[in-house]
């Protein structure tokens, strides 16, 4: 996905925080397109970023399923800049 596309889409994007069990290597950031990846002290990893729509969100959850990752929570967030 190119930068220009991102900026035109982002107005409609919802932001999501997906928390999974275990520390995920940084190389997976590319796998979960456009999500930032933060390893937390409690042994979980947080994927955070814009998600175009529900279908995209489910696609992302499917990826966690396919890697055998245990899902801890999925939360819809206000875009960080709005906070």
């Amino acid at each position: 996905m190119s930068e220009t596309q991102r900026s035109t889409e982002s107005r409609h994007d919802e932001y999501y925080e997906i928390r999974i069990k275990g520390h995920l290597d940084a190389r997976w950031a590319d796998w979960f397109e456009g999500m930032s990846l933060t390893r937390e002290g409690d042994g979980t990893t947080v994927l955070y970023g814009p998600v175009a729509d529900q279908a995209a969100l489910h696609g992302m959850l499917r990826k966690t399923r396919d890697l055998g990752l245990a899902l801890v929570s999925v939360i819809q967030k206000k875009k960080e800049t709005n906070l």
Binding site: G22, R39, G68
Partner: peptide
């Protein structure tokens, strides 16, 4: 180690 098992072991 806290890492995702697959990451750790695959490496």
């Amino acid at each position: 180690d806290n890492r995702y098992i697959v990451d750790y072991l695959a490496e």
